[in-house]
């Protein structure tokens, strides 16, 4: 029983990280058709921003995370306006640019901070544990899950209650018609990049807490699973991403524990294959 509780909470924690990355990827892809490989860079900027402001400026944990999130958001907005926007409607080139950015960005971080993992500043309360139903659960799991829930609610409120949210939801369905109503949809592109960048940067900071360290390539592996989450959940659907993230996190944890290492990842890919063959549009997509 205690194993199950621990595995479930760890799986949910991992799912929370996936969701934070996948929600932005999903919105960016749904609205702008950009498969954003630079998302791992936003994540890394968030992680290093948090680490840097904590070790060099002496920021306490929460302000340090906020610093990292702001840095990631600014990076995302700059990337969108300077590099993605001039290639409007040339989606393959946009994807290629994000691939180049992910390579160059990670290399730049490596040049600045070194290739070796740096110890991440964790607040004391996050290193402790809590007993739940006989299981000893590290507190950082609750931090991850809590952050993801807050972000999920915030994004839903934004999408349901604001005019920009309305534009984003409509744009995911039919971008051309949104412009034909007199709306400049490119402003919404910048906005989803900002939201995605902020959530990814937060994921970077929280991944630092979860893994205890930060390294330039950390984002890449998380990004791949976030991509899988986006496809399983359905491109453009934040709710779908949330469900898929939980599913992937749990499947990965339980199969890794009860079978061999590597089986967890393989089962996630199996899950992806099954979902795609049954519903090519993903869980939240319209059955095609």
């Amino acid at each position: 029983m205690s194993n199950i509780v621990l595995l479930a909470l760890t799986g949910l924690g991992l799912g929370a990280l996936y969701f934070l990355i996948a929600s932005g990827l999903s919105l960016i892809f749904g609205l702008a058709d950009v498969l954003n490989f630079a998302h791992g860079l936003f994540l890394a900027v968030g992680a290093y921003g948090t680490w840097w402001s904590s070790t060099h400026l002496g920021f306490p944990f929460v302000p340090a995370v906020m610093f990292g999130v702001v840095a990631g958001t600014v990076t995302a907005v700059l990337v969108e306006t300077l590099l993605i926007r001039p290639l409007y409607r040339r989606t393959i080139e946009q994807v290629l640019v994000t691939v180049g950015l992910s390579l160059a960005g990670v290399a730049l971080l490596q040049a600045a901070f070194g290739a070796d993992p740096l110890t991440f500043p964790r607040p004391e309360w996050a290193t402790g544990t809590t007993r739940i139903l006989g299981a000893i659960v590290p507190n950082d799991r609750f931090l991850l899950i809590g952050a993801a829930v807050v972000v999920l609610v915030a994004i839903q409120v934004f999408l349901r209650r604001t005019r920009f949210g309305l534009i984003v939801r409509a744009g995911v369905e039919d971008r051309t018609m949104v412009t034909a109503l007199g709306i400049n949809v490119r402003t919404a592109f910048t906005l989803v990049f900002a939201i995605g960048g902020a959530a990814a940067a937060l994921a970077g900071a929280l991944a630092g807490v979860y893994f205890g360290n930060v390294s330039p390539g950390q984002g890449t592996s998380l990004l791949i699973f976030a991509f899988i989450v986006v496809v399983i959940g359905g491109m453009g659907s934040v709710t779908g991403s949330a469900i898929a993230a939980v599913l992937v996190g749990l499947v990965q944890q339980f199969t890794s524990f009860y079978a061999a290492a590597g089986v967890g990842e393989a089962s996630v890919v199996l899950l992806l294959a099954v979902v795609l063959l049954a519903r090519p549009g993903g869980l939240a997509g319209r059955a095609a």
Binding site: L83, L96, V97, V99, G100, L101, S102, L103, A104, G105, V106, A107, L108, Q110, A111
Partner: peptide, 11 residues
Amino acid sequence: EPLFVLGVLFI
């Protein structure tokens, strides 16, 4: 960092 130069060249 070769990958930095290559990534920028690529873009």
